[in-house]
């Protein structure tokens, strides 16, 4: 892939990657830093991406996700189960920044387990296919539907409870 094409794709993926990183790290500033780090890494070594192994979007999101998990592991050297990582919730700055309508949604998302938040963002916010989601999250494609459904039902319950 040409460098300019890659830059253009990265710009378009920036917000989605940021939304996903926010769900993992629980903080928009840390998430933005993480996405910038990955941008720099990818642009420094663009040959690392092999187009024969699949499309760019899931590959890039997987790199972002792995980077975020590395950051969390560095914060908690004792070991963290990223599958069940509970979120600290949005900081006060985050709550002020987001619109009121989305605030309830963001808050409800923070109540879900880490993987459920990510799967919802990947599907409903970024519009990835089940195959791409499986690739990003490194899970079997056959389990995406059931996981996503559980996540949506859990989110719906949270929203019903708190608005």
């Amino acid at each position: 892939m040409k460098n300019n094409d890659m830059r253009q794709q990265l710009v378009q993926l920036g917000n989605g990657a940021h939304a996903m990183a926010t769900q993992i790290l629980g903080n928009t500033d840390d998430a933005a830093d993480a996405v910038h780090d990955v941008f720099a890494k990818v642009l420094r070594k663009p040959h690392v991406y092999n187009a024969d192994k699949g499309p760019f979007t899931p590959w890039f999101l997987r790199v972002v996700r792995n980077h975020c998990i590395d950051l969390i592991r560095r914060r908690h050297p004792g070991g963290v189960d990223v599958e069940t990582l509970s979120d600290p919730g949005p900081g006060p700055q985050t709550s002020l920044e987001i619109a009121q309508r989305d605030q309830a949604l963001q808050l409800a998302l923070t109540k879900l387990p880490d993987l459920q938040r990510q799967i919802i963002v990947l599907r409903d916010y970024m519009d990835l296919s089940y195959a791409e989601i499986a690739s990003v999250l490194n899970i079997a494609q056959g389990t995406v539907m059931s996981r996503l459904h559980r996540a949506r039902m859990a989110l719906k319950e949270e929203l019903d409870r708190h608005g």
Partner: peptide
């Protein structure tokens, strides 16, 4: 799908790239 889960603009991603 209509929510704004990220407030960072494309220009900012481009500048920081």
């Amino acid at each position: 799908g209509n929510a704004r889960l990220s407030e960072v603009g494309e220009d900012q991603w481009r500048e920081n790239m």
